[in-house]
Amino acid sequence: MSTYLVYTAGGVLLYALGTYGLLARPHLIHKVISANFMGSGVFLILIGLGNRSPESGPDPVPQAMVLTGIVVTVALTALGLAIVKRYYTATGLDNLDDKPSAGGDR
């Protein structure tokens, strides 16, 4: 039971840290990493859930969810990094607060 609580508390902490980073840090790479923090926090909670009642054996459903979630997060991260790279190449900017000087695409 206490192991489960530790996982949950750690997970919530990671999620909160990630949320703060995603919203407050201007640097685009920081934002992508923060989103991964959020994801890891949730995965930690789900992993903990799998062992909620050790006497009846591990619950496979949360583990299936974590596996799927990791795949999704990897895809999101890859897409995020690709966009950040292209945006940097196009504008020389590493954040969204400054407006790019060249506008006007369709």
Partner: peptide
């Protein structure tokens, strides 16, 4: 384009959140 990439990045972060 730069504008589309900027909009896409914002959309992506909202989506991640």
């Amino acid at each position: 384009g730069a504008e589309a990439l900027r909009a896409g990045a914002r959309y992506l972060f909202a989506s991640m959140l």
